[in-house]
Design a protein around this nucleic acid. Structure first.
Length: 779
RNA sequence: GCCCUCGUGGCGGAAUUGGCAGACGCGCUAGCUUCAGGAGCUAGUGAUCUCACGAUCGUACAGGUUCAAAUCCUGUCGAGGGCACCA
């Protein structure tokens, strides 16, 4: 037997597995429960980098383990292939985004094979496939019918570089998530999804999910539920208006502080509305409104905290105390949250306090009432009611770009927005040569004149197709459903097949999707559940957020930083098995860390040692020490894989090899097969090679059962117990596991180190924790 | 400012969840081996003191609880991420 040559072995088995269709997962196997291990499907950016390996090769260990544990495991893969980067790259290279994307998908699929993962490519989905996006459009229409997809004019985030609208979730610190250009506010008519209709359920549904705290709290904060009250303050002193004729509503989470309200503040937006309906305002007020609306976006980012504002010359009446307080306009009150107006309580609110200090407004006493009593009184007087508000905004899903799913709507001058009939789906994306975005904010699809003109499905008159495309987050909001039934041409997936796999028991991905993809997918599931298409409304029962593999500089890998690394060199030198295992060994999966290939030799040595060990002839009788180590490793690895503590799994394999070396022996035939099974999820190629060439099997090790361990072997004849004297370890004693406390105590007190430490002191108390610790208190 | 996660040798990290801190690996040191390169083997490797047995200190810092704290509590500092004038 020659030395370990991973490249030959790996290529051979990758081909063999593909030929055997080893990873095609049936819908159902007798006595093997189904389990889907879901990872976020990649964007086909061109080639696999180290982050892809981390994201896919490590969950593969988990998936392979459960398959060996007797589950029918589906480890699916697909491509989230629409989106801006394809379009930008295609523009640069002067090819069509579809062509560019398809090339990448083909190339990356080959690369994915080289990872040695158990992806079922027969179920692969691609969001740009018309047989896929037909159902994306179909779901949009179901939501349109329910009023959950609607068109409205709103203030939207506009990226001037990408020339398209962005959802709130895609704006990071006021900049485009993709290209970092400062986002502008534009008032445009857009297609929206009514995510706010599900705000409450999106919060309450989080409760029973096995998700990381970070993901759960991020969503909670994003949705931003606050409970409080709406209180109506009658207004007087409006020029030209009768006193008490008009009023203003405020939202507060602290109705108990109502008596501390010393002034009222309205947002510039609300003040503008008042002016728009004809209320007279001073030049000073008008100037303030104009100024604050223009400066807002930039200054807010600068963190401008100085309070500015102008008195309106109007007064408001506290509906319970009857007190009259002045009304101000100030831009620290937001137009798009609550009612756009607040009652200011400087005694209880820092911001109100700062404003009061700046403008010399009174700060009253801080006395509190009972919140419920206040609300009851308000209700009795018709001056208010309990109210819950959310920070969540509806999802703006229109995109004025070419490379996306066409929105299946027809604009008819007489019938309005008419859905494309289901039997005409998909509305295919026309093959446009000139797909550049236009300056006027219209989608490039407006240039596809032939495609554009249709007759109205309702009245038959000339009409035009919608030219916006959908945000790609729509595509990815339901892809996991399609994995269960990827070739269905009648439905997005049959209920029977979905019931076999869903909801998803475990979903592994990045924390960057906490308030985007994960939120949208949950929204989609809830809507489809309400419409009767799904039997569950929480799609992902357990979520694991993987850590980031950072660049060698310790920074998050990104093309703009230029620190993106791919592991091709290491794969060529050491093989895929070593790279997989090194990534597993490097750090806890949920933590990640900088990619430092220097340590990879440690893992490569391990695999070489295993290879060498198996080149020796098996022995007849097992060494008890090795047998014990083997069963301990089995227990620990089984436990740790389930916890996704993959780094300690690799340590356990190293310890096992150390134990074999220390015993100066080798393995029996039975032990060899046991070790190969333990190795199989981590180094699938090497394990398969040894299983065949050394053990002489003809079937795959990956269809073998996971080894069990003998717990009695792990109960050793004696245990070493540390003995503390006054909190410091002074000796260790070796006792039988079932030794009586008296015996252990006697042995502990007789230990040399204990006697020395005790000296003349009197033993006051002895605490014996069987098999763990003896603690002596002396004075 | 608020929220979440976290802080352990030169480095990545481990610690049975309150019970011998530093497993496992990288790196480093010494010796052996190889014509050489890469590599391999053996021993050592938290700090300080000690010829040595051993002792003291040590898990960001300061307190506290406990027979016993990296782990629990309080406060401070620092890092990363999220939200951010959200009433």
């Amino acid at each position: 037997m020659t030395s370990y040559q991973p490249n030959d072995i790996e290529k051979k088995w990758q081909k063999e597995w593909a030929d055997m269709r080893a990873n095609e997962t049936p819908d159902h196997v007798e006595e093997r429960p189904n389990k889907m291990v879901l990872v976020e499907f990649p964007y086909p950016s061109g080639n696999l980098h180290i982050g892809h390996w981390y994201a896919f090769a490590l969950p593969d260990i988990y998936a392979r383990y459960w398959r060996m544990k007797g589950f029918n495991v589906l480890y699916p893969m697909g491509f989230d292939a629409f989106g801006l980067p394809a379009e930008n790259a295609a523009l640069q290279r002067d090819i069509h985004p579809g062509e560019w994307t398809k090339q990448n998908i083909e190339y990356m699929t080959n690369q994915l094979h080289s990872m040695g993962a158990m992806f079922d490519f027969s179920r692969a989905v691609s969001t740009i496939d018309p047989t896929y996006y037909r159902w994306t459009q179909w779901m949009f229409l179901r939501m349109f019918e329910k009023g959950l997809a609607y068109r409205a004019k709103t203030t939207v985030n506009w990226c001037p570089k990408d020339q398209t609208v962005l959802a709130n979730e895609q704006v990071v610190d006021g900049h485009c998530e993709r290209c970092s250009t400062a986002v502008q506010q534009r008032s445009l008519e857009q297609w929206m999804m009514k995510t706010t209709a599900y705000a409450d359920r999106l919060i309450s549904g989080l409760e029973n999910l096995d998700w990381p705290n970070t993901a759960r709290t991020a969503q909670q904060h994003w949705i931003g539920k606050s409970e409080g009250a709406i209180i109506t303050f009658p207004l007087s002193g409006i020029p030209g208006q009768e006193d008490g004729k008009h009023s203003v509503e405020v939202f507060t989470t602290r109705p108990d502080t109502l008596f501390g309200a010393t002034f009222l503040v309205v947002s510039p937006e609300l003040a503008q509305k008042w002016i728009d309906v004809g209320w007279r305002a001073s030049d000073e007020v008008r100037a303030y409104i104009t100024e604050s609306r223009s400066k807002r976006e930039l200054e807010r980012l600068e963190g401008a905290k100085d309070k500015t504002g102008v008195a309106l010359g109007i007064s408001a009446k506290n509906p319970i105390s009857g007190e009259s307080i002045p009304v101000w306009v100030a831009d620290y009150v937001l137009g798009n949250y609550g009612t756009g107006a607040i009652m200011a309580v400087p005694a209880h609110d820092e911001r109100d306090r700062a404003f009061a200090d700046a403008f010399n407004l009174p700060i009253s006493d801080a006395s509190l009432r009972d919140a419920q009593e206040v609300i009851d009184q308000l209700v009795a007087k018709g001056a208010g009611y309990a109210k819950t508000t959310f920070k969540l905004r509806d999802w703006v899903l229109s995109r004025q770009r070419y490379w996306g799913v066409p929105i299946p709507i027809i604009h008819c001058t007489t019938c309005g927005y008419v859905p494309v009939p289901d039997d005409q789906l998909p509305v295919e994306l026309p093959p446009l040569r000139d797909f550049k975005p236009a300056d006027d904010g219209r989608s490039p699809l407006a240039k596809a004149t032939e495609w554009l003109s249709v007759s109205c499905p309702k009245c038959g008159e000339d009409a035009q197709r919608e030219t916006d495309t959908m945000d790609t987050f729509v595509d990815s909001s339901w892809y996991y459903l399609r994995y269960t039934d990827p070739h269905n041409s009648e439905q997005f997936a049959s209920k029977e097949k979905m019931a076999q796999w869903l909801p998803v028991p475990i979903y592994l991905g990045g924390s960057d999707h906490n308030t985007m993809h994960l939120l949208y997918s949950r929204f989609f599931a809830k809507v489809l559940f309400d419409l009767g298409y799904l039997s569950f409304e929480e799609p992902f029962l357990k979520r694991v957020n993987r850590g980031w593999v950072l660049g060698p500089d310790g920074q998050k890998m990104s093309k703009s930083r230029g620190n993106v690394v791919d592991p091709d060199k290491e794969v060529a030198q050491y093989g895929a098995d070593t790279v997989r295992m090194y990534l597993a060994f490097m750090a806890p999966y949920e933590q990640g860390g900088p990619w430092d290939p220097r340590g990879i030799t440690g893992v490569h040595r391990l695999l070489s040692r295993i290879w060498t060990l198996f080149s020796q002839e098996p022995i007849g009788e097992a060494s008890p020490d090795v047998e014990c180590a083997l069963h301990a490793a089995t227990r620990n690895i089984s436990r740790d894989i389930e916890l996704l503590s993959l780094n300690t799994c690799v340590s356990e394999l190293m310890k096992l090899m150390n134990a074999v070396d220390d015993a100066k022996t080798t393995l029996t035939t039975k032990q060899r097969e046991h070790v190969i099974r333990l190795l199989a999820p981590f180094a699938p190629h090497l394990a398969e090679e040894l299983w065949h060439s050394v053990c002489g099997h003809t079937s795959s090790v990956h269809q073998e059962p996971w080894p069990s361990f003998d717990a009695t072997l792990l109960e050793s004849q004696s245990v070493v117990v540390p003995v503390q004297v006054n909190g410091k370890v002074r000796a260790t004693i070796e006792v039988a596991p079932d030794a009586s406390e008296e015996l252990v105590q006697a042995q502990a007190l007789a230990a040399e180190g204990v006697i020395r430490a005790l000296g003349d002191a009197q033993v006051h108390k002895v605490i014996v924790i069987p098999k763990r610790m003896v603690s002596i208190v002396a004075r």
